[in-house]
Amino acid sequence: MTDASEKDVEQAGAARTTQAAQAGAADGTRAAAPTKSPIVSVRHARKAFGSVPVLRDITLEVEPGEVVAIIGPSGGGKSTLLRCMTLLERLDGGDLAYGDLAVAADGVYGNKDVLARARSRFGLVFQNYNLFPHFSVLRNVMDAPVVVQRRDRAEVEAQARALIAKMGLEGNEDKVPCQLSGGQQQRASIARALAMNPEVMYFDEPTSALDPELTAEVLRVMRGLAAEHMTMVVVTHEMSFARDVADRVVFMDGGVIVEQGPADQVINHPRQERTRAFLAQREA
């Protein structure tokens, strides 16, 4: 029953994205008064490590409520793109904006205040969780909202406990991360990111450090978030997750977006040879 309703939501999302993509493709501009403004937009992003280009003219926009999966071979630039969008790395050139907040224009970044305001709009879930090992689960989730956002402790605690329960971690509030399984730690880190009330959640290969069983629990809570229309950008190797949950799949290789479109199209009917080769390799 839940599955069916999720499916409807996904199809609606996919349809919306397709329209947007087609509209964009038709005239190549966004002048045709889009109904929604993107939560985050990256335009003509360039990034090199030394003399090695990692991102070459990447343009990507994420609409509210959209779930975007970024797939592709290692070293293709997926993680770097995510790290640039989360301000852990800086672009050499191109623009980055969160809604109406211009973070970087032509590779020139705004001041500290601009960066802080941008950071308050997204959450990031790391491959290896990066929970704070000396804090309890509850404190991991509560600390930043209380200390950084200066919100009321009681209100934050109520939200944190609810989030922990939602992540299926009820009863683990007072445990420290090392007492949890990898899957539990990752779900705690998702709760930590959500407690900041972000507009968009980024996931950087959130299940790569987990075995299949633990992967399933993490993917389950991510599906739940998608069903609630949380805007998500997920770098992943989980093709079934990308196919089933994402509205749009972006295939990156060699620092460029090779192909993107509705999940079903990119994964089941890829147009580009490189995408086909990558997906064939994954199947094998």
Partner: peptide, 22 residues
């Protein structure tokens, strides 16, 4: 580990908060 600094940075902790709390 670097990841501790990165997690703190993304959550918006200042340099001082990161050092003394994390």
């Amino acid at each position: 580990p670097r990841g501790q600094y990165e997690a703190a940075e993304v959550l918006g902790y200042s340099g001082g908060q990161t050092f003394f709390r994390i």
